[in-house]
């Protein structure tokens, strides 16, 4: 699975599942006795496919699962991990909750802001990084920590984080 999203210039009005994910879509639906249950899995597949969730992707999910569009929209916006706007290639999600904060998360975040020249929720001009404060990642013993795509990085400090950014092209 590649998780580096591509930022589309403009989302088309109507989307279809690419051939490559059709089997995965069918597999996800088959896990539940009720189609509707597959809404999160399908939103995930859509987000992986298009890098974010353009409205047309939510419509596609609704169509696939025979749901009404507003329901899917309500679900997608309830959760924080669905990107309703395009994001950068690397989505830096820095935990700011108490344990991490006690261990220096705020300082680390400030450092990232300075270094990347962007604030919370913003994307660098080159589309490489999006920076976001998030709540507890369940890695409190390794605070401060951040998640980039699927990967967890723990026990961070300025030097470590700089090295990580270096590696993320």
């Amino acid at each position: 699975m590649s998780h580096a999203p591509v930022m589309p210039v403009e989302a088309p009005a109507v989307l279809e599942w690419p051939e490559a994910v059709k089997a995965e879509v069918a597999e996800a639906i088959s896990h539940y006795p009720v189609k509707r249950s597959a809404v999160l899995p399908l939103l995930w597949i859509a987000q992986r496919t298009w890098g974010w969730l353009p409205p047309a992707a939510m419509q596609l999910v609704a169509r696939t699962l025979e749901l009404n569009e507003p329901e899917v929209f309500g679900v997608a916006t309830f959760y924080t991990m669905f990107n309703l706007q395009p994001v950068g290639r690397h989505h830096l999600q820095v935990c700011m909750t108490l344990s991490c904060s006690l261990m220096g998360a705020d300082r680390l975040f400030k450092h990232l802001e300075h270094k990347l020249g962007i604030g919370h929720g913003e994307t660098t001009a080159d589309g490489r990084f999006t920076l976001r404060r998030v709540e507890c990642l369940a890695a409190c013993g390794g605070g401060p920590c951040m998640q980039v795509g699927l990967d967890y990085y723990e026990d961070l400090d300025e030097t470590k984080v700089d090295a990580i950014l270096e590696k993320l092209k």
Binding site: P41, W44, Y79
Partner: peptide, 9 residues
């Protein structure tokens, strides 16, 4: 089966 949430305490 496994099921993945999407960010909600």
């Amino acid at each position: 089966y496994t099921h993945l949430g999407a960010g909600a305490y």
